[in-house]
Design a protein around this nucleic acid. Structure first.
Lengths: 103, 103
DNA sequence: CAATGATAGGTAGATTATCTACCGGTAGAG
DNA sequence: CTCTACCGGTAGATAATCTACCTATCATTG
């Protein structure tokens, strides 16, 4: 997992639907075709940061598998933040590409 | 600067020619069109790591501007390492792209 | 000749984000 | 009743970066 990308990835998957931590990790792993493994020792602290920044909000609810789970959903600020992170990522990749050259 | 990319960027610029720290930073900045700023508090520790890993070797020499400078050049292991880092980077970008989707 | 900016190398300490390794618990299948 | 999947968390180590500081010389300009 590239440092600095986890926040963006979490916000992205939450832009589709609210989810609990376990589901967020699974979605990132599945959508990356298992290329990204979300360590849950990284995930929960990251979710705390997102909440502290006002980008996600939480509520406790029963999961589809009948467990008590903390659900995360994007705030309005969180939706804006996705754009910020996307642009930062795109520019970072472009900048690295310019240095690394083709192939 | 994305964490985890500096080593690769340094190895890449050294694959063209040997250079001192100041020149390495300038080359990365110029080739990225100033999108990447190489903090020299990050650069020198990174160069130490690369040397400790046996990917670069150093010698002191006079620079083009007539100053005593430590020049870095790739070892055979360093050349191989570029490929390793390139592949890792390419796969990481691809994985993130799959999660983030188009646009 | 003195001041300044560009060149050059370095470190200490703080910050940030990640990973490792633990802890706790429940639901449901077999 | 045991085992797997599900679910949430933290403490401490690790790694890489950034901030801020130090030193020094060369070359140009006033």
């Amino acid at each position: 997992m590239l440092p600095g990308t986890l926040n963006m990835l979490i916000l992205q998957v939450l832009s589709r639907k609210k989810a609990n931590g376990y589901e967020i990790a699974k979605m990132i792993e599945e959508r990356s075709e298992d290329a990204l493994q979300v360590d849950h020792g990284s995930l929960y602290p990251a979710l705390r940061r997102l909440e502290a920044n006002g980008w996600v909000e939480t509520e406790w609810a029963m999961s589809a598998t009948n467990r008590n789970a903390r659900y995360y959903s994007l705030t309005a600020a969180g939706r804006k933040q996705i754009g910020v992170e996307r642009n930062r990522w795109r520019e970072a990749v472009l900048a690295v590409s310019r240095v690394m050259g083709p192939a």
